[in-house]
Design a protein around this nucleic acid. Structure first.
Length: 599
RNA sequence: GCGCCUAUAGCUCAAUCGGAUAGAGCAACGGCCUUCUAAGCCGUAGGCUGGGGGUUCGAUUCCCUCUAGGCGCACCA
């Protein structure tokens, strides 16, 4: 019977009582009217809205409005017929017709009491579901160049990606998180040259020109150079002879290229690669450690160089060539991306024979498909949005299902300290690192603040606010609600009052206060919210839900005495509070935020 | 110039693939601690959802246009 009960808004959560409580009687009524001939067509699925206004009930259906056309009758007329055809239900108090033809369902307290029982029964799994049905999904996020420590902009991508991974896993997807390491290419050479310059300084060798402005200016480069010199000795000094005079060069980028070419030539492949690795290895280790400390974990770190080494780049390009999507011009090999809607064609192999970043990225995405991922989600900085058309073009040219790639753009986080805006530039070495941020505001506040906005919105991150332990700080607001519940437990035990024991759920029929029902209604909503966040790839929905739930709890707590003498009432209220704490903890866990039992 | 994104209360942001009277927090104002944590609660005020047009039972949401911001337009990554 309920085959067609796929309700996109409610039935994402198979265990939501709503489906059984309202959808089934409604479906029966619709079928009855269908038999009677009033409704020639039935909807493919039922949807419910949660009305913003209490007078509109707990759940609303617009089915009468939708069927109006095919039935050739006015919506209200249909609504009235449906309402009178509804079978009796122990969960439904009444059904009203309102507005243009909405059916507003009012539920009995028993329905909400059942929701509380569900939370207890499912515990840490409450809110989880199988909408993903084990589908494999590849998540790539952060993937910052290993040319320096992560800064607060990367932190946003990290928090967003890790939270999204948690949410998708909770929804039954098999999630694979990967960090793409851009360890090949010019930026890494610039890092190597930067380390070289600092190395000379550490060795007491004066540079014949000022520290290049095209090099990485950050202090961390000095540290890397000093440690490299300790372990590797002075062997790099051979490259000092006949250093090119780049001091007089106007073009900083060109100057770096000249310096890099000199180093490669003078040191030879092996020594140069040691210099190259000195920066890369240390910075990558720092990034891994930083992310792990932030609660962000990857299943794999994928090296761009491995694509070069195992021929994946050549293989992918060969396919493009074979498909006649390429041409040669001005000594370079071009991909005809304009054939797939890109603004201009793109270089794959430069005049000097080196592959572009784009070429390895094509190979990388091709390789993801080879590994069997039917769906991949890339999280990129918003400044890379112009890159999307060419990647999509390459997927099409390679005959891949283009819709399998989702690109989520993460806007920059703009850092403030009160009114003061803190500007950042990696190259100039002026930035607040993620590590500094974590030290200053803590992991919990950082993780929560980062996902408090939609990813595609600019984020103003106020360090002052995040560190303030006050009512203005939403993360403490939510955590405090959780801690309060545990405080109740401690209080009860101290006073020798009985509390709900183990698996046994006390009778909940005494929970009839409107505030209690509102709370239970919110609990009920959690699985729906999780599903919605997963579908839209929007962790902020969880953060907002948690703020709502915490607010409702604080209201309830202030208005209602929990630890009363009457044991039936006390146990029932404690069970409700416990369910709130459980739900808060589950939600916070999805965001990588702790749920302290005491504050 | 072309393309993408954005525009909602004084500020920062929500609004469940189009729903009913657009919601929170902060800031402002007024209340609540001899009682379970005041890191809390209650109340008041605050809006032509940037302007205009279209689609329909119904638009903050979809389409067009204008305005104002952000970002991107490399043989960098």
């Amino acid at each position: 019977m309920p085959l067609a009960l796929h309700c996109s808004k409610i039935c994402f959560c198979p265990r939501s009582p709503v489906k059984n409580f309202v959808a089934e009687p409604l479906w029966q009524a619709l079928q009855e009217l269908h038999r009677q001939g009033m409704l020639p067509q039935l909807p493919a699925h039922l949807e419910f809205d949660r009305p913003k206004q209490q007078t509109f009930g707990h759940l609303a259906s617009n089915v009468a409005l939708l069927l109006s056309r095919s039935a050739g009758r006015r919506p209200r007329e249909i609504a009235e017929a449906i309402a009178s055809a509804l079978p009796h239900s122990p969960w439904i108090e009444k059904c009203e017709i309102a507005g243009p033809g909405f059916l507003n369902f009012f539920l009995r307290p028993a329905a909400f009491q059942a929701a509380i029982a569900t939370v207890h029964a499912e515990g840490a799994r409450y809110g989880s579901q199988d909408m993903g049905r084990g589908e494999r999904i590849h998540l790539e996020f952060v993937s910052a160049n290993p040319t320096g420590p992560l800064h607060v902009g990367h932190g946003r991508g990290a928090a967003y990606g890790a939270s999204l991974a948690n949410i998708l896993r909770f929804c039954g997807y098999e999630v694979f998180c990967e960090y793409y390491v851009n360890d090949a290419g010019r930026q890494m050479d610039i890092l190597a040259a930067s380390v070289f310059c600092r190395y000379l300084e550490a060795a007491g060798q004066a540079l014949p020109w000022p520290f290049p402005k095209g090099a990485y200016q950050g202090e961390y480069v000095r540290g890397i150079a000093a440690r490299f010199r300790e372990t590797a000795g002075d062997f790099l000094l051979s490259a000092v002879e006949e250093l090119p005079d780049i001091g007089c060069m106007e073009d900083g980028d060109l100057a770096m290229d000249v310096l890099i070419a000199h180093l490669k030539d003078r040191l030879g492949p092996e020594a140069y690669s040691r210099l190259h690795a000195a920066g890369l290895d240390e910075i990558l280790a720092d990034i891994r450690d930083d992310l792990a400390g932030f609660g962000v974990h990857y299943d794999n770190w994928y090296a761009e160089r491995s694509l070069m080494q195992d021929g994946a780049v050549e293989g992918a390009i060969a396919r493009l060539v074979a498909g006649e999507y390429t041409y040669s011009s001005e000594g370079a090999l071009w991909f005809r991306s304009t054939a797939f809607g890109d603004d201009k064609d793109r270089v794959l192999r430069r005049e000097n024979g080196a592959y572009t970043y784009f070429a390895s990225d094509i190979a990388y995405h091709w390789e993801k498909f080879q590994r069997g991922f039917g769906r991949m989600v890339d999280m990129w900085g918003a400044d890379h949005h112009g890159y999307i058309p060419r990647i999509r073009a390459s997927l099409q040219a390679l005959g891949q299902e283009e819709s399998a790639l989702e690109v989520l753009l993460v806007q920059f986080a703009i850092l403030y300290r009160g009114e003061e805006k803190i500007s950042m530039s990696t190259r100039a070495g002026e930035f607040v690192t993620l590590r500094q941020l974590r030290g200053e505001v803590g992991n919990d506040a950082a993780r929560f603040f980062y996902v408090l906005r939609r990813a595609d919105q600019h984020l103003d991150f106020d360090l002052e606010l995040a560190t303030r332990h006050s009512e203005e700080n939403p993360v403490f607001y939510v955590q405090y609600a959780h801690a309060r519940v545990h405080s109740l437990w401690r209080q009860a035990l101290e006073r020798g009052l009985s509390v709900p024991a183990g698996e046994d759920l006390p009778g909940l029929r005494v929970l009839e206060d409107p505030r209690e029902l509102v709370l239970a209604d919110l609990l009920w909503r959690f699985p729906e919210q999780v599903a919605s966040a997963a579908r839209d790839r929007e962790p902020h929905q969880i953060a907002f839900y948690l703020k709502d739930l915490a607010a409702s709890f604080h209201t309830y707590y202030n208005a209602t005495r929990i630890l009363v003498e009457d044991e039936d009432i006390r146990l029932a209220r404690l069970a409700l509070c416990r369910a709130v704490a459980r739900t808060l903890a589950n939600g916070l866990a999805l965001l990588g935020v702790t749920a302290p039992e005491q504050m």
